[in-house]
Design a protein around this nucleic acid. Structure first.
Lengths: 238, 238
DNA sequence: TAGTGGTCTAGACCACCGC
DNA sequence: CGGTGGTCTAGACCACTAG
C-alpha cells in the first residue's frame, strides 16, 4: 500500500475521489457533512472544506447549502472526446433520431479479438452491431463488445430499444477511456450498412472504457465522411 | 464592466488567470509573493493562498519555496487535441522528421476565405503551404493562415526552416482553440502532395486559434489514412 | 428556521532551498 | 540564514434553502 505522507487535505480528497471513481459512491450519493468529516479525520473544518472544494472544482461533487454534498452526474457530451449519446446529440441538433439493433450475440473472445482489445482469452462478452440515424440517414455504425464479467447485468438486456451506449452510461461507472480516431475507406459491408459507396472515406473512432483497470467495453464507430464531423473547443492549460 | 460580486478568492484567481491567458504574463514570469498580494487585495494570506492553489491545480502556475510563484509552461502535446508539434511527436516516436515549405505568400483575405474562418474581409494574412514527413513519408499537409494584424512579427519570418506551428507556439500566446475532425477523400492536389492515390481517405483536422477573441491562425491538416491516427486518453470528470 | 455550505481571518509552525 | 510557500487551526459571520 505504502501511501505517501501526503497532506491531510490531499488524503481526504483522494479518499473521496477514489470512492467515486471506483463507483462505490454513485452519482447522486449524499456525502457526510463537513462536521462529520471533521470528526472522521480529526481535523479543522477548513481542511475538510479545502478537500471538498477541490473535488467540486474537478467536477466530481456538487454542493447545495442546507441540502448537502452530492456526487455529481458525469458530463454527457460537452467536448469532442467525451462519451457520446447519439439521442442527446440529435435532440441538440433538432433532428429525428432512429436506433436499429442489427445483431446481438453472446460469445467468448477468440485470441484475435482478445489481443486486439487487451482483454483475456475466453472472456464472455455481448457482441452488438447497431446503427444510428438522424432524419433517416445513417450517421454511425456501431460495433460493440461488453465484458460480461464486469457488467453481468448486460446479459439480461436485449438492446432492441435502448442503444448500448446509452444503457452503459446510465448503469455502469467508468474511470478511464482511450480513443483512437482515424480515416479509413469503407469496406463493402460497412458501406452497405451506412448506405454509402464502398471505398469512400469513413471517420472511425474506437474507444475502450475501463472501470478501475478492468475493461468494460470496446466500441468501434464508423461515420460516413459527409455526414459527420467531430468538434471541440478548448483552452491551453486544461 | 459589471463584474459579478464574486468571492474575493475568485476575483484574485480570475485576475491572475486573465493576465496569463491574454499573454500579459508569459511562461516563466514571476508573480508577486503572497505577502504582496495580501497587501494588494487587502486580505488574509489564506485567501490569496486559495486563489493561487486553484491556479496551480489548473496548471497555470508552479510554485517553489523560497523561489516564488511562476507562470507555468503550457503542456506541449499530452492529449489528442492539444496543439501539436510534429518535430516533438517524431522525436517521441523515434522517427526522422522532415519539414518542407512549399509556398509562402502575403495577401488580403477575399470574401470567401474571410467568411469561412470568421475573420474580417481584407485582413492581411500570411498564407503558408507546407509538408511534414516522418522517415521520408509525408504524414501531413498543412495549409495555414496567420493574421498579420495580430501577429505582425510573422511578416519577418520566412518559415523556410522552422514550421509555422512551432514558431507560433513559441512566439504567440493563445487563449482558445476550436477543432473540427472529419474524413474526406483526397483531392488530386492533396493526394499528389501526400504521395497517395487520389480519392483515398484522408483524416482532416481544422483548427482555429484565438488570442483574447482575436483570431490568430487557421490551419487545415490533411493526414493520409494509413499513416496517421489521433489518440487520447481521459477520465470521466475532467 | 435551523442545518448546511461559503467565505474569510489572524495566527501559527514547518519545510524547503536560494543566497 | 531568512524568505518563501505549505499546511493547519479555531473561530466567526453570512447566505441559501429544504423541510
Amino acid at each position: 500500500m505504502s501511501r505517501r505522507p501526503d497532506s491531510l487535505h490531499a488524503r481526504i480528497r483522494d479518499d473521496i475521489g477514489a470512492r467515486i471513481r471506483t463507483g462505490r459512491w454513485r452519482p447522486g450519493h449524499r456525502l457526510p457533512t463537513e462536521a462529520e468529516l471533521m470528526a472522521d479525520y480529526g481535523c479543522a473544518r477548513m481542511t475538510v472544506n479545502r478537500a471538498l472544494a477541490e473535488l467540486v472544482n474537478a467536477g466530481l461533487l456538487v454542493r447545495r447549502r442546507k441540502a448537502g454534498t452530492f456526487v455529481a452526474d458525469p458530463p454527457v457530451q460537452s467536448a469532442m472526446l467525451e462519451i457520446r449519446d447519439f439521442a442527446a446529440e440529435a435532440r441538440a441538433a433538432h433532428k429525428r433520431y432512429t436506433y436499429e439493433l442489427l445483431s446481438r450475440a453472446e460469445k467468448r473472445l477468440v485470441p484475435h479479438e482478445a489481443g486486439k482489445i487487451g482483454a483475456t482469452l475466453g472472456d464472455e462478452v455481448v457482441s452488438i452491431l447497431c446503427r444510428h440515424s438522424f432524419d433517416g440517414y445513417p450517421v454511425a455504425l456501431e460495433e460493440r463488445l461488453i465484458l460480461l464479467d464486469v457488467v453481468p447485468q448486460a446479459r439480461a438486456e436485449s438492446f432492441a430499444i435502448e442503444p448500448p451506449g446509452t444503457w452503459l452510461l446510465a448503469h455502469v461507472a467508468w474511470s478511464d477511456a482511450e480513443h483512437q480516431i482515424r480515416a479509413e475507406p469503407a469496406s463493402a459491408a460497412i458501406a452497405r450498412h451506412l448506405a454509402m459507396p464502398a471505398g469512400d472515406a469513413c471517420l472511425v473512432m474506437e474507444r475502450r472504457t475501463w472501470q478501475a483497470a478492468r475493461l468494460v467495453t470496446d466500441v468501434v464507430l464508423h461515420f460516413p465522411h459527409n455526414r459527420y464531423a467531430l468538434r471541440g473547443r478548448f483552452a491551453p492549460h486544461g
